[in-house]
Nucleic acid binder design. Structure first.
Length: 668
DNA sequence: GAGCACTGC
């Protein structure tokens, strides 16, 4: 009995002392390498303790002497905060003292901070103020194998900084498959830049492997390809349930629709399970769910029940669920790609890479040995690419080109990229920045316009709109619209209620001119009513978390503008849209979004300016069933086989010629 | 009349 009580009152593993983590035995080797080489590539599984232990080893070894700081970057905000909290606990300090973190809107650091966790995007921004990042003695780029644009650019910057700061230490944490690529990147041309006599290529850095804490995972393939992987996933779930021991199941699918279908199918067919068999509890997981809806997947299933989670790629790296013993992998992921010819982003289901397949399988072996059922053949697996195409080679690069220019990198084409983006993407980005006036005939950043655009934390077209707003007398309103469009379509919550009622509620905020002014109305009603009345968002199908975020974004953008010496007059805001205020807002939007113009056709669809592309108003847009002639839009994307425009506002054709004569002189 | 994978400043 005593034993039982003991077991029940302690939680194992969660607070496993640092001394028991496998990484501890590599401590001396690691410190030696960091002391000896400027660059160290650390290969380690999730759970190896690299993110939490390495910075502590470095601090103890004296890397924070003379007030220097150790920086550890993460690709996501949650990771930066949770790891910081964990390390502060281990060190025995309050978060924000010796150990702190910094993410957008939240700087929890102080003069005492020695170890600082931050997002990679934020560290790039710090380089705008301190180009050599002089306050840091060591910079560790965690999860670099994910190859986000920010971490790729950060690595390029660090390579450049290293030439001016030979004492700087760089640590890159990576999955096995890509460690060599990172080392090669930092070793290239080190030999002929003549840094130091006798420092040959190989000596710039080295790779150290830290063993993980994962359990063996059996990988199983299909004998022949599946016709319908959603259906195959469902039947596999039932097979596991009937023949495998206890343990929850994680199923990777590509999107919301597939997931909701699968969840429904499993709950319907569960009733046909033999009597007395354990039950199955299916649940969905994707980013579009509210935080509360996502929390269900972390709850323990009731007695005699097996949880089965149908998830998007969010469960591959961003969300970790404990207790998963079985993984079912459909082999596909929806990936975003940007077409530089049309300027349209597509979202298409694509085969995953081998690296991604390994990562998915690894989700099974975190607490005990697991199994991964791949819904494709072994031959199909062998044919997969080793890694995904990095984001920087398939994105709209305008925001990043602008950022590089602001960092003093004029010749962006020759920037040392880990993977160089295709020339067409670069050209498209430069063309857009030129048309917005952010760069001049020599591709130099303009001052103050371009420099200010680079500082504002919104995409270039919206930055231009904001900086044009004082001339139109609508800065306060555009600030709000910029904050609301930054939410990326998360303003409204998904509800199963009566569609008509939902629509009519939304229409209460509708403005004749279109979606941008509708968003303005939503925000203004929220700040006057919604923040006090808890039910306001709920009753109006608004996303409270997103609205709160809009308030923060607006405040931050306002601070930037005031720093530029642009004052924001808020006194006129409540007047709403009368007089010609609404027209000034629409004109101002045209000054920034002239490249996103379209004309409505008699059938209700739109054509882009050159006339070759059919565009559809997104069903969330007011313009979905309204008459208009010319419009501008915030965003365009292709999904399935239709191209949608979102956040659409009516304009007049001659405004395009008025605000972008250069852009339209040859086309109209 | 019908819907976007995931991040970040």
């Amino acid at each position: 009995m005593a034993e039982f009580d003991l077991g029940a009152s302690f939680i194992p593993a969660l607070h496993k002392p640092a001394a028991l983590l496998p990484i501890t035995k590599h401590r001396d080797a690691l410190l030696y390498l960091v002391e000896t080489y400027p660059v160290t590539i650390v290969v380690g599984q999730t759970g190896s303790g690299k993110s939490t232990q390495i910075p502590q080893f470095l601090e103890q070894a004296g890397w924070c002497a003379d007030g220097k700081v150790i920086a550890v970057t993460q690709p996501r905000r949650v990771a930066a905060t949770t790891v910081a909290v964990r390390v502060a606990e281990e060190v025995g300090c309050e978060v924000g003292k010796e150990v702190g973190y910094s993410i957008r809107f939240e700087d929890v650091t102080s003069a005492a901070t020695r170890i600082k966790f931050l997002t990679d995007g934020l560290l790039i921004r710090e380089a705008l103020v301190d180009p050599l990042l002089t306050r840091y003695s060591v910079i560790m780029v965690d999860e670099a194998h994910e190859r986000s644009i920010s971490s790729d650019i950060l690595l390029g910057l660090l390579k450049k900084i290293r030439k001016r700061r030979p004492e700087l230490r760089i640590i890159v944490s990576s999955a096995t498959l890509q460690a060599e690529d990172f080392l090669r990147f930092f070793s290239e041309d080190a030999a002929h830049t003549g840094e130091r006599a006798g420092e040959d290529k190989a000596k710039v850095g080295t790779i150290i492997s830290l063993e993980g804490r994962t359990y063996p995972i059996d990988i199983l393939y299909l004998e022949s390809p599946a016709e319908d992987y959603v259906e195959k996933a469902i039947s596999t779930v039932f097979d596991i349930h009937m023949s495998e021991p206890t343990g929850d199941i994680l199923v990777f699918l590509t999107g919301r629709e597939e997931i909701e279908n699968a969840v429904q199918a499993v709950s319907e067919r569960s009733s046909q399970l033999p009597p007395h068999s354990k039950s199955l509890l299916p649940m969905p997981l994707y980013a579009g769910l509210t935080t509360e809806q996502q929390m269900y997947v972390f709850e323990q299933a009731p007695e005699n029940t097996r949880k089965v989670i149908f998830s998007t790629n969010i469960a591959e790296a961003s969300v970790t669920i404990s207790g998963i013993v079985y993984v079912v992998d459909c082999g596909f992921v929806k990936l975003r790609a940007y077409n530089p010819k049309t300027g349209i982003e597509t979202l298409t289901a694509t085969p995953i890479s081998k690296a991604s397949a390994a990562q998915r399988a690894g989700r099974a072996g975190r607490t005990k040995p697991g199994k991964c059922f791949r819904l494709y053949t072994e031959d199909a697996f062998q044919a997969l690419a080793d890694t995904d195409v990095p984001e920087i080679q398939r994105s709209n690069l305008a925001p990043f080109v602008l950022q590089l220019k602001a960092l003093g990198i004029d010749n962006v084409v020759r920037f040392d990229f880990l993977s160089a983006p295709p020339a067409e993407l670069m050209i498209k980005a430069l063309e857009l920045l030129y048309s917005l006036g952010a760069i001049d005939d020599y591709a130099k950043l303009t001052k103050p316009l371009g420099a200010r655009m680079a500082e504002l934390a919104v995409e270039p077209m919206m930055a231009k709109t904001l900086l044009s707003a004082p001339a139109f007398g609508c800065l306060s309103e555009i600030l709000t619209i910029a904050a609301m469009t930054s939410l990326g379509g998360n303003v409204w919550v998904q509800v199963d209620e009566d569609k008509k009622r939902v629509e009519s509620t939304r229409r209460k905020f509708a403005a004749e001119e279109g979606d941008h002014i509708t968003l303005l109305n939503v925000y203004q009603t929220f700040v006057t009513k919604g923040r006090k009345e808890g039910r306001f968002c709920h009753d109006n199908f608004l996303n409270f978390k997103a609205m709160t975020r809009a308030v923060s974004i607006r405040a931050q953008l306002k601070r930037y503008l005031e720093r530029f010496g642009i004052s924001v007059d808020e006194s006129l805001t409540s007047a709403g849209t009368h007089n010609n205020k609404a027209e000034q807002i629409c004109r101002c939007l045209t000054a920034g979004y002239f490249a996103h113009a379209a004309r409505m056709q008699p059938d209700g669809t739109f054509r882009n300016v050159s006339g070759g592309t059919v565009l559809h108003a997104h069903p969330s847009s007011l313009m979905f069933n309204r008459k208009a002639d010319w419009v501008i839009f915030h965003e365009v994307f292709e999904t399935g086989n239709k191209i949608y425009i979102r956040d659409v506002t009516k304009i007049e054709k001659n405004w395009l010629l008025e605000y972008a004569p250069e852009f339209y002189k040859t086309k109209s």
